[in-house]
């Protein structure tokens, strides 16, 4: 166990650039996803096989959920928000593998995702509404709320980051403490609980990001 559990664990350096464990874990996850999809979804057919059917169910569940939140055609937003949910789900669940630490248990990964969501909200808002209407929506319903609206853009991004980080980090801590105190078998229920927590956090992060984007494009109020 590290001396400071909140500090990054540098595995190696590329020149002056330190490569942390969560970065490597992310690369592994990316590689696994790419290999899996290349194998099982190389040439998708109309008559789907079991794996393709399962993937279609997952994708259509995401699309349906996003359609309800965005109240419009969700496909332009599916690559970002669908990737968020799948990456977070896989990354959070990766902690159940022996020797693997979830990338979301350190602040950098949730911060990176929250930053991407933050800029995506503005990107989609400007793209859909245009500059003038998008900027004006910060002064609604009254110009007096402009500072609060701007502040809420920052705080909700921060809360998005902290929520994911806090949940996953605390779960890691609990597992680590229990393993120190009780050995190998006792943490198993908590590992199962971790599966639930990981999926719930992925869902919450994705839905909040969807709501923020929906507010940005004028589909809903955040």
């Amino acid at each position: 166990m590290e001396a400071d559990p909140l500090s990054i664990e540098v595995l190696f350096h590329i020149g002056p650039v330190p490569i942390a464990r969560q970065v490597v874990t992310t690369w592994v996850i990316m590689a696994a996803m790419a290999i899996f999809l290349r194998i099982f979804l190389r040439a998708p057919k109309r008559d789907a096989g079991p794996v393709q059917a399962a993937l279609e169910i997952v994708v259509m569940a995401i699309v349906t959920q996003l359609r309800e939140v965005l109240d419009r055609d969700p496909w332009p937003y599916v690559p970002l928000l669908g990737s968020l949910f799948l990456f977070l789900g896989i990354a959070n669940l990766s902690a159940i593998l022996p020797g693997v630490k979830t990338p979301t248990g350190h602040i950098e990964t949730p911060a990176a995702l929250a930053l991407i969501v933050f800029f995506s909200v503005h990107f989609y808002g400007l793209k859909v509404r245009g500059i003038g209407p998008y900027l004006r929506h910060y002064a609604q319903p009254t110009p007096f709320l402009l500072p609060l609206n701007i502040l809420s853009e920052i705080t909700r991004t921060f809360s998005l980051m902290i929520r994911l980080f806090g949940n996953m980090m605390s779960h890691e801590f609990i597992i680590a403490v229990l393993m120190l105190l009780a050995g190998l078998l006792l943490p198993i229920p908590f590992l199962l609980l971790g599966v639930l927590i990981g999926l719930i956090q992925a869902y919450i992060f994705t839905i909040l990001a969807s709501v923020y984007i929906a507010a940005g494009i004028g589909a809903a109020e955040a």
């Binding site: 650039v17 996803m33 790419a34 999809l37 690559p79 990338p103 950098e108 930053l115």
Partner: peptide, 26 residues
């Protein structure tokens, strides 16, 4: 550095999943 790597990594994930999963499924 890690933050920047993770930003790039997630954008790569978005590209990867868009190309290998969402587009074919759609």
């Amino acid at each position: 550095w890690t933050l920047a790597f993770q930003v790039v990594n997630f954008l790569a994930v978005v590209w990867l999943l868009s190309r290998l999963l969402f587009r074919p499924i759609r």
